[in-house]
C-alpha cells in the first residue's frame, strides 16, 4: 500500500443562500481513487474549480471525504485521533506565501512546526538548519520574511514543512502567485526535496511546464480524474489537453504542429533538446 491512497473519494458541500436555505449541493471531488508510492513525484493538474485543491486538503486531514476513504501512511484521515500524526506525515504548502508564514524571522518560522510537535530546542535548531539548507535559504535565516521575494517566501514555507520531517509534502499551487523567476526557484527546490531527500511530493498546479519532471500526472476536470499517466503519455494527447483548455508547452505544441504538417516525430516531446534530436540534428 502506498504512502497516500484514496478510494472512491467524493466530497460534497451544501451551498446556502443569504438566509441559510439550502440552494443545492456541489460535488467538488467526484469518486476519485489514486495510489501514491513512497518517494514518487506526483503532479495534479487542472483548472480552478476542477477539484484539485479540495482533493489536496484531504491528504492533510483539513477536509474529510463525504464518501470513500483516504489513507496517509496507512492511517485513515477520518480517524480523529490520528489527525496530528497525519499532519506531520503529510505536510502542506499553500498558494499565498504571505498567509502561511507565522514567524517574524525566517528561522523562527521554520521552527514553528517542530515547536508545535514538542521537539527539544537543540534538535529544532538542527532541523531548521538542514531544512533551510535544503531549499537554499540558509543565508537568509535572520531576515524578516517581509523583505523576501515571493519565491524566497515560498521556499521558507517549504523549509517550514520539511523541518517537521514529513514523509510526504503536498504543495497546493505554490507557484500561482509568483513571477517566472520565483516559479523556477520553487520548482527547483521541490525537485531537490524529491531527488535528494527522497520526500514524496504531490504538486498541484496549472502550469504545464512544472509537471515535466513528475513520475506520474493526474489531470482533473469537474472533480474527476480525466487523464492519468506519465508526463509523456499525457502530453501525447495534445487534442485532449486542448479540449480541457490546458496550456500545452509550446515545444510539445510545435512538435504536434510539425506532425500535422507531415514531419515524422514521436508523440509527447517535452524539451527543445528532444525535438532537436528527433529532427536528427546534432
Amino acid at each position: 500500500m502506498g504512502i497516500i491512497r484514496a478510494k472512491d473519494v467524493t466530497f460534497e458541500y451544501i451551498r446556502r443562500d443569504e438566509e441559510g436555505n439550502v440552494e443545492g449541493i456541489t460535488t467538488a471531488v467526484d469518486n476519485v481513487s489514486l495510489n501514491v508510492k513512497q518517494g514518487d513525484f506526483i503532479a495534479i493538474l487542472g483548472h480552478n474549480g476542477s477539484g484539485k485543491s479540495t482533493l489536496a486538503k484531504h491528504i492533510n486531514a483539513i477536509l474529510y471525504p463525504t464518501e470513500g476513504t483516504v489513507w496517509v501512511d496507512g492511517m485513515d484521515t477520518a480517524d480523529e485521533e490520528k489527525v496530528w500524526d497525519i499532519r506531520r506525515t503529510a505536510g502542506m504548502v499553500f498558494q499565498n506565501p504571505d498567509n502561511q508564514i507565522i514567524g517574524q524571522v525566517v528561522e523562527e518560522d521554520v521552527g514553528f512546526g517542530p515547536e508545535n510537535m514538542g521537539v527539544p530546542a537543540k534538535e529544532i535548531w538542527e532541523r531548521v538548519e538542514e531544512s533551510l539548507k535544503a531549499v537554499g535559504m540558509y543565508e537568509f535565516r535572520k531576515h524578516s520574511p517581509n523583505k523576501l521575494s515571493g519565491g524566497q517566501k515560498q521556499r521558507v514555507s517549504i523549509a517550514g514543512v520539511l523541518a517537521m520531517h514529513p514523509k510526504c509534502i503536498v504543495l497546493d499551487e505554490p507557484t500561482a502567485m509568483l513571477d517566472p523567476r520565483g516559479r523556477k526557484e520553487v520548482i527547483r527546490a521541490v525537485r531537490a526535496l524529491n531527488d535528494v531527500e527522497g520526500v514524496t511530493v504531490v504538486l498541484i498546479t496549472h502550469y504545464m511546464e512544472e509537471i515535466i519532471y513528475a513520475d506520474k500526472v493526474f489531470v482533473m476536470d469537474k472533480g474527476r480524474i480525466a487523464m492519468e499517466g506519465t508526463p509523456k503519455e499525457i502530453f501525447s494527447e495534445v487534442e485532449d489537453l486542448q479540449e480541457l483548455r490546458l496550456d500545452v508547452p509550446q515545444v510539445t505544441l510545435l512538435a504536434y504542429e510539425l506532425q500535422k504538417r507531415g514531419i515524422m516525430l514521436p508523440d509527447g516531446i517535452l524539451t527543445a533538446e528532444e525535438l532537436a534530436e528527433a529532427l536528427h540534428l546534432r
Binding site: 508547452p249 509550446q250 515545444v251 505544441l253 510545435l254 504542429e257 510539425l258 504538417r261 527543445a272 533538446e273 525535438l275 532537436a276 529532427l279 540534428l281 546534432r282
Partner: peptide, 28 residues
C-alpha cells in the same frame, strides 16, 4: 516565448531556420 527559444536552439544545432517566429504556428 518558448518557441523563440526552441528555434534558437534548433539553429544552434545546425538547422538553418528563421528564428523570428513568435507564435507556434509561425514557428512550425
Amino acid at each position: 516565448p518558448q518557441v523563440t527559444y526552441i528555434l534558437h536552439e534548433l539553429r544552434r544545432r545546425g538547422l538553418d531556420v528563421d528564428t523570428d517566429a513568435t507564435t507556434v504556428e509561425e514557428a512550425a
